[in-house]
Amino acid sequence: MFRWEFFLEIIKKPDNIPIILLIIALIVYTWIALYKAFDNDKRLAEGRPVWEAEPHNQEKVHTWPHLLNIEFIAAIILMAGLTLWSVFLNAPLEEPANPGVTPNPSKAPWYFLGLQEMLVYFDPWIAGVLMPTIIIIGLMAIPYIDTNPKGNGYYCWKDRKFAISVFMFGWFLWMILIVQGTILRGPGWNFFWPGEYWDVHKVVPLVNVNLYELLNIDPKTFWLIREMPALILLGLYFLLIPYIVSKIYRKFYEDLGFARYTVTMILLLLLMSLPIKMILRWTLNLKYILVTPWFNI
């Protein structure tokens, strides 16, 4: 049941205001970027020069006054904004620190809320160490795996459909996790709908099971045998899918070459593993697919 007072209570928290601004900024800037990309598509289709190549955009002007006075105005607006913000919103007082009693909910800083959300679905070792490392390495690897020469110096959708959609997917996934961690995760890191009262007493049934439990395999079986279905599943996921994709999109595969294609597919499949795991958790209450004595997936 949606109740405005509970919704506003969460929205109005001084800590949450930046996240609200983030939602607005996210929508506005994504819209601007895509609008310009589609605009360039249209120009290319009509045979006109892209927006960046228009004569008035090619013209060179002096930094002073053209750039600096824009920056000056931006500085003024920022100052006014910060002044008003500090006048109207005070930093909240929280509980006295006590190592024996952590606050409930214990939330990471906003930029880590995506990671914290991932901890719900993955082993801490994977969500906390492996995935962030792969995210950083993956971002660093983009210039080496994306060798598409089209779109250099301008921005358009048609030439870079794959790159833009993958980026948009990852970008929105991460932002949605941050927004969800801020607004929808309440005491006990339980999920609360907008406008629902954040009840510290809320009890959520803990009925998550591992894959072998779903398949009714005796947990006391030797782990390698017990995890056979999981290993096969993961093998299919990481080997079969790239193989099939390479057969279907032959050109895509040939453009990239084997090494680049493999790296791209591994990164893509890892990215997709998060929403897949989330959906499996919501539908099948799946805790882990693979359970080994050292780590779980």
């Binding site: 824009i70 000056f72 003024i76 100052m79 006014a80 002044t83 008003l84 006048v87």
Partner: peptide
């Protein structure tokens, strides 16, 4: 246009500074 934005934002900054003084 740019000048107008400059004027408006300066006025806003001035008012917010006055507001800060008043609140104090």
């Amino acid at each position: 246009m740019r000048f107008r934005i400059f004027v408006v934002s300066s006025v806003i900054l001035f008012i917010s500074a006055l507001l800060a003084v008043w609140v104090d």
